[in-house]
């Protein structure tokens, strides 16, 4: 691997102005949140961007080949370009903070972070994205960091010459399998559905690696085994007729995502899978509260869609704020 030196764009220091009432608070710093922030700054809204990190899920994406303007770019490079653009504007940033609770009194939204910081704003855009969904099978939780991984680019190097399983049938599972194909000795690709949901271009790439990759469509995971270290797993066909033991040392779980909406659960309407319900103008069930990107019920989760939704949410929020005055 070629040695490189990544210098992430600097983040603005803590705002530290807890008494200030912001026009707009943006929760989340992925493509939706950062785009929303740039649009807000251009509308000269007094803006707070509050997020665990800048870049969100894209930081975990090795290659991006469908964000217009770039035929090919690494996920983190694309996010550095986003950060650079955010940095042009005087936006208060609270990076490294997770929101614990969002509430609303008569006039303002109140944001409480896990470290106890409080902020108030006239309007809020939730763009807090999604995180990896666990399988919820026996052994999974116990073996996180001991063979169970949700980040293939982070942990793939530990499985050199080893047998591993990738769980899932979508793009992220196939991308994980591609990361691992160069490293592991054998890969089992296991999914509950009988056909793959990944883009055909990714499926074709993996099918070229047939010598290394064994496919188990229509299988579920019964148990991940091992005490202090992963030692194998048992899978079962979806008709429950066959079970099989695989002596893998690593399991990469890529079965999709859950929305980061818990902090707003008591305030706003969520759909069955926990996404914040929005209309096509990013309105939620609460006036002044908007949502954008993967955390919202917008159909299709893509970087380019999230960015577009973030822009739209700010423009609609701006109209709302104008009417407040």
């Amino acid at each position: 691997m070629e040695l490189d030196f990544v210098l992430s764009k600097e983040e603005k220091g803590p705002a530290g102005k807890t008494e200030l009432i912001y026009d707009l608070a943006i929760i989340g710093g992925g493509p939706a949140g950062m785009t929303a922030a740039v649009y807000a700054a251009r509308k000269k809204l007094k803006t707070l961007l509050i997020s665990k990190d800048l870049g969100g899920q894209v930081l975990w994406t090795t290659e991006v080949e469908n964000y217009m303007g770039y035929q090919y770019i690494q996920g983190r490079q694309l996010m550095d370009k986003f950060k650079e653009q955010v940095r042009q504007f005087p936006i208060d940033q609270e990076i490294g903070e997770e929101v614990q609770k969002l509430s609303k009194d008569e006039k303002f939204f109140a944001i409480l972070t896990r470290t106890g910081k409080k902020f108030r704003a006239k309007a809020v855009i939730i763009a807090s994205g999604k995180r990896s969904r666990p399988l919820n099978v026996p052994g999974e939780k116990r073996l996180i960091g001991r063979g169970v991984s949700y980040c293939s680019i982070c942990d793939a190097p530990f499985f050199e010459g080893k047998e591993v399983a990738v769980i899932g049938g979508g793009n992220s599972a196939f991308e994980a399998a591609l990361d691992l194909v160069k490293i592991a000795s054998r890969i089992y690709l296991i999914d509950i559905a009988s056909s793959w949901r990944a883009d055909s271009i990714l499926v074709e790439q993996i099918e070229k690696e047939k010598k290394k990759v064994t496919f188990f469509p229509a299988h579920r995971i019964k148990e991940i085994e091992g005490k202090d270290k992963l030692q194998g797993m048992t899978i079962e066909s979806s008709n429950r007729k066959e079970t099989k033991h695989l002596s893998v040392q690593g399991v990469f779980i890529e079965i999709g995502l859950v929305p980061n909406s818990e902090f707003a659960r008591s305030l706003v309407k969520l759909n069955q899978i926990g996404e914040i319900v929005v209309d096509c103008s990013n309105h939620t069930s609460i006036p002044g509260l908007f949502a954008a990107g993967d955390v919202s019920s917008v159909p299709e989760k893509q970087i380019i869609i999230a960015a577009g939704e973030g822009a739209k949410a700010t423009l609609i929020a701006h109209q709302y704020l104008m009417r407040l005055k």
Partner: peptide
């Protein structure tokens, strides 16, 4: 130290945890 996932934090050779946590945690 049986590292199979990162970041893995080992304290005084024996006690450890996985994952990047916020400051207070």
């Amino acid at each position: 130290y049986q590292v199979m996932g990162v970041p893995k934090i080992v304290i005084n050779e024996k006690f450890g945890f996985e994952g990047a946590l916020p400051e207070s945690a």
